[in-house]
Design a protein around this nucleic acid. Sequence first.
DNA 1: ATGAAAGCGCTAACAT
DNA 2: ATGTTAGCGCTTTCAT
Lengths: 346, 346
Amino acid sequence: MERSTPKLSDVARMAGVSEATASRALSDSKQVRDRTRLRVYQAAELLGYVASGAARALASRRSGTIGAVVPTLNNAIFATSINALQQALAEASYNLLVASHEYDPQAELDLVRRLVERGVDALMLVGTDHAPALFALLDKFRIPYVLTWAIDAQRRHPCIGFDNRAAAAEVTRHLLDQGHRRFAMICGITAHNDRVRERIAGVRDALRARGLELRESDLIETPYSFAAGKAAMREFMLRPQRPTAVICTNDVHAIGAHFACQELGIDLPREVSITGFDDMEISSLLSPGLSTMRVPKAELGRAAAIYLLGQLRDDDTALPPEMRVQWVERGSTAPPPVGKTRKPRA
Amino acid sequence: MERSTPKLSDVARMAGVSEATASRALSDSKQVRDRTRLRVYQAAELLGYVASGAARALASRRSGTIGAVVPTLNNAIFATSINALQQALAEASYNLLVASHEYDPQAELDLVRRLVERGVDALMLVGTDHAPALFALLDKFRIPYVLTWAIDAQRRHPCIGFDNRAAAAEVTRHLLDQGHRRFAMICGITAHNDRVRERIAGVRDALRARGLELRESDLIETPYSFAAGKAAMREFMLRPQRPTAVICTNDVHAIGAHFACQELGIDLPREVSITGFDDMEISSLLSPGLSTMRVPKAELGRAAAIYLLGQLRDDDTALPPEMRVQWVERGSTAPPPVGKTRKPRA
DNA sequence: ATGAAAGCGCTAACAT
DNA sequence: ATGTTAGCGCTTTCAT
């Protein structure tokens, strides 16, 4: 029968050293002679010693755990980021505690509270929209954190992301330059989602700069799902006066919209253009391919890991510069049908 | 200035009770008078008290944390399961530690070791293929675990899943019944992936039962990505002797295959039938829709949570019965082109 | 380079 | 129903 699981004192005894030395040896402290360290390693190995994270955390005040709170893991977008984050953390022997709140800010606060309780050493959050109490909590416990997928306009929080507003404006400009004048938009739920709001604002910026505007009726706000994107697109396409370009705040919607066209027999991009945002793997494989703004999803996770790890090691790890997004023009965009819209002026 | 973060003794003092009582009150023990509990709550609230998970874990020998180790979070399939698992755990005030190993068994073992060190109370794994040392470790530490997405043939481990082999056989039978005789298969990497191997075996079972077999050259093994599925399908379709039905072990591949047909101008399902496995949201939206075996992804996560939580409560929660999968016939399957294949006999 | 000893902040017998 | 008292297993001064 297995004796109760070995503890550090067992390892120390077996190696013929004190607990202190055993502890140092196992945590790679420089101040242990190689021969001693080896003896300790062997003893640990032989006993199948596994340290108690709880005891270690209590004594050292570090848990070796980092938390990540995302809106959802239900689509591949955040999942990809989280996957990269976890991989990077694992290399540094850190563990990742994940939580998703399905876009409910109260749930998010609760989750963060629980993560703090669990002793996360640092935290990754998505976006800038968070309860003040959340930041207060992190401050009080001096927990390093980083906001991702966005840039905080007021620069009050460390961020790893990009300018959603500018990026969306750029998308819009590409369409404008192609001659589009009648726009519609399919966007995610804006409540508690700064990314969506910024992307909408960016579209409006670009339109306004050319003397256009987006009426409320030209904007359908709906949860992120392929089906919702498809339904929204149907609605637009069944209107007497169709838009010639439909901007989506997310590839999930755009792909849904793409399917709607297929089903309705609408020629994409001849009759209507569609743009996405984020660039999922599948977007490049549709025919026509989806024109979209590529976001470095995995890179965001990796950069968050590097930054947080840096914060935990010393302090002055600089934030990486604003991330670059990239417009990827594929087949889902083209100039609007002639006769229905004026040619572009410039 | 903020004093150093309050501890239980501060709460106790403020509430005018002993630490023990404060501890009981906060952990909802029945043996505390309501009035006392209230005083403790208020004190805790006032001080902004947040318990130390490490201390609690050390003293109680429970961490309130459950681990999940999945192959990857890069596609929506496991992500959906994990999302459901996390949601269910959160309701029970448990945290989820996730790790992905990208199909590397050594990495998996390392991750599990670290999770054990971190003190996870229970663990969710995917599939039945795991290093013996992994199970030994969980045994030694008496950590409840559950394997998911599969059923262990020897019944040596608790599983929540379904019979991949039988399910794949069923897919194949649907195709056989439609009259198909020339099959090809696109599958995920089989090494360290029992689900894939079982699904292949299921296909072979069904074929053999009708006197057919799958030659090695009719099976392309490739990583799970849309692009890989597409490439594999191209290869099959460019051969002089095309299969009339292509079975994929996963919707990701099948969707890729779908795109290949579109690009090659191959009429789906007239010229060739394609089947998937898992049923992702997007699969129903393609045209034609993808015929696939639906797997209750979120349900798997939820059931795992319920089972593990039950094990921790130590009531003898039974494992749920084998999960049901469901054949969803959509437009990507049809009888093979006439003249190229004999009619089905029965 | 190593050891002795004092906690880290909480829970869980055991009393009362 | 509440208090007293030991730890839980490790890290980390402080000595030597």
